[in-house]
Design a protein around this nucleic acid. Structure first.
Lengths: 153, 153
DNA sequence: CATCAAGTGTACGTTGACGTTAGATATGGA
DNA sequence: TCCATATCTAACGTCAACGTACACTTGATG
């Protein structure tokens, strides 16, 4: 699975990052080491593309540091593994369900924390938006008054 | 005007920044050089406090760089000056109204640009919010299933 | 199959936003 | 007046997030 393999050049063009950024993200553990050609060139799968896209959104839109993003993604990754495990274990024995449940609770807690921060940021951003909008309206009114004055003079 | 003068220590305690940050912001032109005591110590007025507060909101909540913040504040400052000028000139001669109008138009353009950027950021942020919310709901559903299973076993 | 843009690892350079240190004043209370 | 802080300027240090240069392979294309 993941047949549609993307080369570095592809990713660069698709997501607007530089090769160096890809290397760096791999270096700090944000991106999985990626598959390689027998010559050593990197090949990325659809999932990695998704992940990178997610990373960029978190970075640009939220201003998170790569460290914070890493912790968020690590959580989500743990969740994915957990979900997979749950599906396989559906009718199997669940001797360590307590452990899994605690991981689940912890994950929920982390996700809620992230969501809380996003919500906060959103409301502050909306405040700023309102401020700017008010300012703009006043200025536009000022302009309208000015041009009106002018046309009647 | 601006009698309630704040010392560096006051600002530090009120807004939670370090003295170095104040110096730095002044260095890059984000803060007006502030008044000084005869000994050279800085004194800030209410307006500077407001401005700094604004700067911190833009930085923390929006993740703007100091450069971007500077350009935004410069725009707003120009607008304030313009509005004051307009008020004074209301019934006076307005020989250079054309010049002022062009400044007005330019200011509106700049403000619209800023607003556009904020709107963009908002929509991206909402996308992220939705993603996280979806994830969280799925996980919670998973937990509910798990606990249900457990209580009936 | 020759070529040459593109990719690789390694490593040092850069930029933004301050932190930290040093050595010399200033300030406000006892 | 004297002293403990607090501030000043100037300069170097730091950390994250890449940029850039180098000497060297890869792999698509004419």
């Amino acid at each position: 699975m993941n047949r549609p393999a993307y080369t570095v050049e592809d990713v660069v063009k698709l997501l607007g990052v530089t090769p160096r950024t890809l290397h760096y993200y791999e270096e700090v553990g944000l991106l999985e080491p990626a598959a390689r050609t027998q010559g050593g060139h990197r090949l990325y799968g659809e999932d990695t593309l998704e992940r990178l896209h997610h990373i960029l959104r978190l970075k640009d839109a939220l201003g998170y540091s790569l460290q914070e993003i890493k912790s968020i993604l690590d959580t989500e990754y743990a969740l994915d593994k957990l979900k997979a495990k749950y599906k396989n274990n559906q009718s199997a024995e669940n001797r360590d369900s307590i452990l899994e449940e605690s991981i689940l609770e912890e994950s929920i807690r982390l996700l809620e924390e992230v969501l809380q921060r996003v919500d906060d940021k959103l409301s502050r951003l909306q405040t700023v938006q309102k401020n700017i909008r008010d300012r703009l309206e006043k200025i536009q009114a000022l302009r309208d008054r000015t041009t009106t004055t002018k046309s009647h003079s």
